[in-house]
């Protein structure tokens, strides 16, 4: 049976992981390659590397990082942050990334999704959607959730699928950082409306929250950052817990 996926997200700046971690066994907690390999070893199903600098100068650093991750990690990984062209995607995939994630650039230019899907195949194109509840509606935001757009989240999710996105990474800016649980109602509504997998992000604070997002939220994957980095939740323990609760999990 297809397993629900647990995905740690690593924020990258200048080729280094940004948020601190308390992995005592790491030689270098800022080394994304080493951290990624540890997560893979612990049973993470995929990894997401999000480049938060994303300036032209840092692109080469990012490509070098992707090459190093691909050499050392034997599970699929996605790279996102500042990707806005076929050339960007080509460089990252050629360096060994399995998928890329686009966000603001797809909002600015939705045809980019079609172009990327045609060129590289839908399977490697994730569209990240940052959403916030404003004035009674779920509205797509950019710039880390600060800037509202004209797109309604549910319609935009359908549109990116129609344009060829292979998966949707849905981050609720309302729940992100709260540790109070994922945005299950919205996630479920989008999942019901789409035939591509939904990766839920934002709000994970406990193991129950993952159970809830896989059941109530109908998500195909759950993504989190700090709770894994700070070992508030251990991936192996989380997967055992979910399996005991009857969720299909790779252990």
């Amino acid at each position: 049976m297809l397993a629900k996926r647990i995905i740690p997200c690593l924020d990258i700046k200048d080729g280094r992981t940004v948020k601190g971690t308390n992995f005592v066994n790491l030689r270098d907690a800022g080394d994304p390659v080493e951290l990624g390999a540890v997560y893979a070893e612990q049973g993470a199903d995929e990894l997401v590397f999000l480049d938060i600098t994303a300036t032209v100068d840092n692109r080469k650093t990012l490509v070098d990082l992707v090459r190093n991750v691909a050499r050392n990690v034997n599970i699929p990984f996605t790279v996102g942050g500042g990707i806005s062209s076929v050339a960007d995607v080509s460089a990252l995939l050629n360096a060994g990334a399995d998928k890329v994630s686009v966000n603001s650039s797809a909002v600015r230019n939705p045809a980019l999704i079609n172009e990327l899907a045609l060129q590289f195949g839908s399977q490697c194109i994730i569209v990240a959607i940052d959403t916030r509840f404003v004035g009674g509606e779920h509205i797509v935001h950019t710039h880390g959730g600060r800037k509202p757009t004209d797109f309604r989240t549910i319609q935009w999710a359908k549109e990116v699928e129609d344009r060829g996105a292979g998966e949707i990474l849905l981050t609720s800016m309302d729940t992100d950082g709260t540790k109070a649980g994922f945005a299950n109602i919205l996630t479920s509504e989008i999942s019901d409306n789409s035939s591509i997998p939904i990766i839920a992000s934002g709000g994970a604070g406990s193991m129950e929250h993952f159970y809830d997002v896989f059941t109530d939220g109908k998500a195909d994957a759950g993504l989190a950052a700090s709770i894994f980095h700070f070992k508030e939740i251990d991936i192996i323990e989380l997967k055992k817990y979910l399996k005991e609760k009857g969720i299909s999990i790779r252990l």
Partner: peptide
């Protein structure tokens, strides 16, 4: 058949 399953089949399966 995508009528009741998501297609593509993406992820870990046994």
């Amino acid at each position: 058949d995508s009528s009741s399953f998501k297609v593509p089949h993406v992820g870990w399966n046994n």
